[in-house]
Simulated assay, not measured.
Amino acid sequence: MNHIDRPHYPLFNEADSAEIVNARIGPNVASRTRQVAEAVVRHLHAAVKEIQPSHEEWLAAIQFLTDTGHMCTDWRQEFILLSDVLGVSMLVDAINHRRPDGATENTILGPFFVDGISVSTHGTNICHDGKGEPLVLRGRVIDIHGEPVKDAIIDVWQTNDDGFYDVQQKGVQPDGNLRGKFETDSEGKYWFRTVKPRDYPIPDDGPVGRMLRTLGRHPNRAAHIHFIVQASGYETVITHIFAPDCPYLAEDTVFGVKESLIGNFELTDNEKEAASLGFPSPFWSVRQDFVLKPSD
């Protein structure tokens, strides 16, 4: 019988479990793949050693991940939801968007952005269902030196006053409700009309929702409006503005709130100005400037 030379790997033992597993990674594996795999194995084994789960507990963890996968659809990505509520999505975003002081900070994109919305004229009212407290939002897009950024494109979207995005209520909300796209003028200015954002719960009828309840946490997102701001030569910003009076501001379930993203919402009681906007009085007013960092 011919002798076959095989690599010699250490046999398993508890103390060196992570090193033993990582020793099996082949010699021709890409360095970045190796780095990621080794780190995941090290931290996973460290967690298991700290927790010391029973067989039943480990099977329950595997069943939780299985249920999470079964919950995923084209519009429902339960694994992204899991990443969000554990703060991992925000951490990855923060690592990848370290910007100089004064530049607008990022936050998470969320699952309900819709591409291909047409550019509207300044002042357009993006609320088509007539629900909610009227809000006028004005601002500028500028660079980190305070110079205006003309022709910047601003995508905006939010839930209606019932707490749902239009794509969640096909046939209930008008198509394109509370979505808009605007282009800044030569002074970097933009403005549009909408409604005051409200808090709403993330989908909590699946395994992530059960996990939150087990941990004594609620599923609510702080009231916000989404923005994507893009301009040639500048780093794209994916961000929100948050309503300062929202009761969930300090406990947004996906950790999306940053101090710099809390807007200054002012209640304006002015009949003449309200009439010029087509609003009743009082109405809400916000000024929100976006500060862009040049592309690397």
Rank of each mutant, 00 (worst) to 15 (best):
I108E: 12
I144A: 01
P280V: 10
G180W: 07
V141K: 08
V172C: 07
K150D: 11
L267M: 11
L86Y: 02
H218K: 09
V141F: 05
L109I: 09
F64L: 14
D269M: 07
S31Y: 08
I51A: 09
V88T: 07
D161E: 10
N160S: 13
D143A: 01
V29E: 01
F113T: 01
S120K: 10
E105T: 09
F113W: 14
H145D: 11
I126C: 03
L44C: 12
L178Q: 03
R42Y: 02
R76S: 14
P203L: 13
R99N: 01
A243S: 14
S186P: 00
T73V: 01
P203T: 12
K293V: 15
C127T: 14
A39S: 07
L65P: 00
V119S: 02
F265D: 01
G69W: 08
R98N: 06
D115T: 10
R34I: 02
V136E: 10
L215A: 15
H240V: 09
L137N: 08
E105M: 08
T66L: 08
Q35Y: 13
T121F: 00
K150G: 02
P207H: 03
H226G: 00
T107Q: 00
F182S: 07
I142L: 15
D93M: 06
T121Y: 02
V149H: 06
N264L: 03
G116R: 05
D155P: 05
R32P: 00
N28L: 08
D143V: 12
S89L: 09
A61Q: 11
K181D: 11
G256N: 02
D162C: 00
C72F: 06
F79G: 04
H240S: 02
A46E: 14
V41A: 06
T104G: 04
N177L: 08
G256V: 00
K170D: 07
I51G: 08
H8W: 14
L178A: 02
Y234A: 04
R287T: 15
A37T: 12
S281W: 11
I108G: 12
V195A: 13
N22A: 05
K272Q: 14
Q158S: 05
Q63L: 15
D67I: 04
M71D: 15
I62L: 14
H218F: 08
S118M: 14
E266G: 09
F182D: 00
V156L: 04
R76A: 09
K293S: 14
L215T: 01
G176K: 06
K181G: 08
V229Y: 07
E251M: 11
N22G: 00
S83A: 13
P10G: 04
I117Y: 13
F242I: 05
E56Y: 04
L91R: 13
G87Q: 13
V119Y: 00
D175H: 12
C72E: 12
Q77A: 11
S31V: 08
N270R: 15
Y200Q: 03
M211Y: 14
I153Y: 12
A250K: 15
S260Y: 05
